[in-house]
Amino acid sequence: MKIGVVTFPGSLDDVDAQRAVRLGGNEAVALWHGEHDLKGVDAVVLPGGFSYGDYLRCGAISRFSPVMAEVVEAAQRGMPVLGICNGFQILCESHLLPGALIRNDHRKFVCRDQRLRIERTDTPWTSAYSAGQEITVVLKNGEGGYVADEATLDRLEGEGQVVARYVEHNPNGSLRDIAGVSNERGNVVGLMPHPEHSVESLTGSGTDGLGFFTSLVEAVLA
């Protein structure tokens, strides 16, 4: 499948995300924030970083970039979209995902290997995992605290929209240990940790993150 990876001014992890897409058996297509063009891709990854310098709020400016108009429209039609870290923040600002991400409760930037439990596996990004499977991937964020009002949190839990949860240690004060959520349909997934950094044993904390990039292939072959 052709998976587009958007580069915004200030994106950091777009090249790693492209590499992870290729290692996952897909074709990576570079997309540019300033173009109204998804180049015929089947899915989109919004990578981590500090798009537009995190000015105003993380993701607040990126949300209105030309490419995001296309991403929002495609997502509403059902195209798979994965937002990682800053990408997750952009998806929340775009109202494609509920809730918001605020500064870590301990106020420090955190960078660690993080244990997660995959809770929803019927999304195009997590179908390679089994429900309840625990994985370890890289986590690095300054504003990764997931918040939403109680009613929204209850709804997310009730509808099975919590995709991944922190286990053993909550690194940023996220409510109910939420590390990732999806929209109702499941095609849009936001995740604060970085699976794209955990796809090769040489440079990462193992290869547990690869499933996020092989799931699409498996979904097609299944």
Partner: peptide
């Protein structure tokens, strides 16, 4: 302003 129920780590600092 952050909503009253939202944690404000900067204010706390």
């Amino acid at each position: 302003m952050p909503k009253p129920e939202i944690l404000d780590p900067q204010g706390k600092a």
